[in-house]
Every structure is written in structure tokens, then in C-alpha cells.
Design a protein around this nucleic acid. Structure first.
Length: 230
DNA sequence: AACTCCTCCAACCGCTACATG
DNA sequence: TCATGTAGCGGTTGGAGGAGT
């Protein structure tokens, strides 16, 4: 570890749950003087905590604009939709839900929403229906042979690393280079369920839409990666 | 009542990005 | 340019408390 946070090095600092007295001290200090340099807050507020811990306590618990309590159905739906678009970017998701913190949303996702989606037969990582390996392989072989051809010789020209299909969608939205902008060829590695198959695409046999559809139909729970330059 | 197991969430840890001297 | 400090993020952990036996 080259740059361990100073909190970890200091002794005598309290850790663990905050007492009501500590909360009072921090709350009173911040409401009187505002948020400045967090590293100086513990000393000035009379707390045996590190600044990082104070910052977290304020952001996640003491801030007066926090909305406590259960998530509404609207909030729940919004989190699911945002997670589909953004992935585990909890801070970005939290910015769309006033009064909710990234930590709160992350916990809610991990403890509740994930299980709820699984029960509905939806893969929480990809937001696509859960399907088993065999049906996926059969579908791929029967329905996609004209579009996906086994790679004989690797000829990568552009690289996109995508961990899930939503990242591909996002790449499209963000105008990252995709193969319809790439004049000729791409190597596509479908690394899925422990198997690793290579495919070769050319601009003649695939379009952006057909690729996107193929991803959405075939990669629930899978890992997609592009290899080559860029 | 006592014990174990499980769930949930507050807090911590490790890391990166950025600012500053 | 480099070293150091700070803020912020996401992953992980640990313990309180509830459920089950």
C-alpha cells in the first residue's frame, strides 16, 4: 500500500458505531460552521474520530435533507431503471434520488432489489431474463449461424471492454466507437458461463442493431470483451 | 429461555482522482 | 514533475437484532 489513508495509521481514534453524544457534537459543529476541511473537523468538534469517518457519518446519517425510511415504489422502479443504465454507479444513481445516499441505495439493492429481481427471473447484473446454459447454446447455434462465424485468424482492429450488455448500450449512447463506425473488422469474444468462444464479424454480415439484439438475447449473465487496439 | 442462523445496514477499507505546494 | 493531502467512490465487513428451533 503506497498511500494508506491517515485514518488507518492513527491510534486512539474511536471506531464502530457512533454514540448520540458524538452525533450531537458533529451535528452542532457542522450546522454552526458548515462543511469545510474534514480532516480538521474531529479536532474542532471534539471528536476522537478521523475526518473520513465524520464525513461519512454526516453524509449518510446526520445531513438534515436526508429522507429516512422505506423506499417508495417509484424510488424502487427508478433505482432499477438507473441501475440498468448505469450499473453499480451508486453515487450517480443517488444523485437522481433526492434525500437518498449512495450507501443507502447500495444496501437496498444488495439486500432487497437483487433478490426481488431474481425471484422475477431477471438477472440483476444484466436486467435480462435468466436463462440456462444449454438453452443459450442451442439458441445461439440454431438461430445465429449466418451472423456469427467462428474466428479462424484473429484480426482485431478496435477494442471495447464490456462487462455486460448494459455497458454496450451505454457505449452506444455515449458515442464510443462501435463497429458501425469501424470500416472493416472486429473480433468478438464471447466469454460466457466458463466457456470461451471467439467470433469474427465484418461489416458485411452484421449491423449495429443486429449486434445489439444478439447481445441482449444471448448474454444474460455473460461477460463480453473486445480485444485488439484502442 | 437459550441457542443458532440469517438479514440488513452502518461503518470501514482500499483505491482513484484531483488539488496544492 | 513529484510528493503529499483530501474528497469521493464502490466493495466488503461486522455486529445488532429478528426469526427459527
Amino acid at each position: 500500500m503506497s498511500r494508506r489513508h491517515s485514518c488507518s495509521l492513527k491510534q486512539k481514534l474511536r471506531k464502530g458505531l457512533w454514540s448520540p453524544e458524538e452525533d450531537d457534537k458533529l451535528f452542532n459543529y457542522i450546522t454552526m460552521f458548515g462543511v469545510g476541511c474534514w480532516s480538521s473537523v474531529p479536532k474542532l468538534a471534539g471528536l476522537q474520530r478521523c475526518g473520513k469517518s465524520c464525513r461519512l457519518r454526516w453524509i449518510n446519517y446526520l445531513r438534515p435533507d436526508l429522507k429516512r425510511g422505506m423506499f417508495s415504489k417509484q424510488e424502487e422502479d427508478l433505482i432499477i431503471n438507473l441501475h440498468e443504465a448505469l450499473g453499480n454507479r451508486w453515487a450517480q444513481i443517488a444523485s437522481q434520488l433526492p434525500g437518498r445516499t449512495d450507501n443507502e441505495i447500495k444496501n437496498f439493492w444488495n439486500s432487497s432489489l437483487k433478490k426481488k429481481l431474481m425471484k422475477q427471473g431477471i438477472d440483476p447484473a444484466t436486467h435480462k431474463p435468466l436463462i440456462n446454459n444449454e438453452s443459450l447454446l442451442v439458441k445461439e447455434e440454431k438461430e445465429k449461424p449466418s451472423m456469427i462465424m467462428p474466428l479462424s485468424q484473429p484480426q482485431p482492429q478496435r477494442t471495447l471492454m464490456l462487462e455486460s450488455s448494459h455497458e454496450y448500450s451505454e457505449a452506444l449512447l455515449m458515442n464510443k466507437p462501435t463497429f458501425d463506425l469501424d470500416p472493416l473488422q472486429l473480433q468478438f469474444e464471447l466469454n460466457q458461463f466458463g466457456t470461451n468462444s471467439s467470433y469474427f464479424f465484418s461489416s458485411d454480415n452484421i449491423s449495429n442493431n443486429s449486434f445489439s439484439n444478439m447481445i441482449n438475447e444471448n448474454t444474460a449473465g455473460g461477460l463480453i470483451s473486445w480485444e485488439g487496439e484502442n
